[in-house]
Amino acid sequence: MMTDSTMPAQATAAAPSEAQAQLFPFVLQLADTSLILAHRLSEWCGHGPILEQDLAMANIALDFLGEARSYYQYAAELEGKGRSEDDLAYLRSAVEYRNPLLVEQPNGDFAGTIVRQFIYDCFHYHLLLQLKSGPDAQLAAIAEKSVKEAAYHIKWSAEWVIRLGDGTEESRRRVEKAIENLWRYTGELTTPSATEQALQAAGFVPDYAAIREQMDAHIARVFEEATLAVPVGVFMQKGGKDGRHTEHLGYLLAELQYMQRTYPGLQW
């Protein structure tokens, strides 16, 4: 890049560093992931199995939505093309979305939602612990705030995995079915995409092998208490982080983006 001494000083000061600019796709991926999971959880609102759990799911959805907004705002800043958080969330197509496949899976029954949540919480919590001491100050600040919420989420979802696994015959059958359905999406979380690999080399994205170990230990502990078996030898699906999604995401986005697509360019 050519340096020009006549360039206004503030333009260079406001622009993110070259290393930071590389972070854009990763921050966007974090934003998409939190938004899609928040959206799925919010679908339960008013339909939960117990009023207290309806409240809990809305609460967790709100945490993820808040986290998504922080990431989108930061991503917009990193990109520096004048796009807003809403432009990024509402005006990108399914193939541009970068969330892992797990979080876009439909809610299913309460067991399906709990298993999806618990697995993601395990990844999310351990990821945030790393990001909060990472080299990027802004990402560290978002992680610092979010990890407190994630600690509560993982406690909530783990407790439900235990209740359902070690509850009744029916709850056990349902939670086992959910694990069987969703396990194939668990590998992608810690399989770095090309973007992540590059950022890992630069130190911006933590080592996923270490996170995987912590996750697996956490899952094993909770499954043991729930008297559930950890599946082995499952073929792992991936692609979400590169924009190749399951069919479910298109429907979700059709609903999520309906207003912005129908009435382009308006303020709400």
């Binding site: 919010s42 609102c45 907004r69 509402y90 207003m259 709400w268």
Partner: peptide
């Protein structure tokens, strides 16, 4: 309308509002 709210801010406010209603019920 939570899943169709037109902006992230509106979505967040609406979800919080409906959650308040669950709290009132409680």
């Amino acid at each position: 309308w939570i899943t169709r709210a037109p902006s992230l801010k509106r979505k967040s406010i609406l979800l919080a509002k409906v959650q308040d209603e669950a709290g009132h019920g409680l």
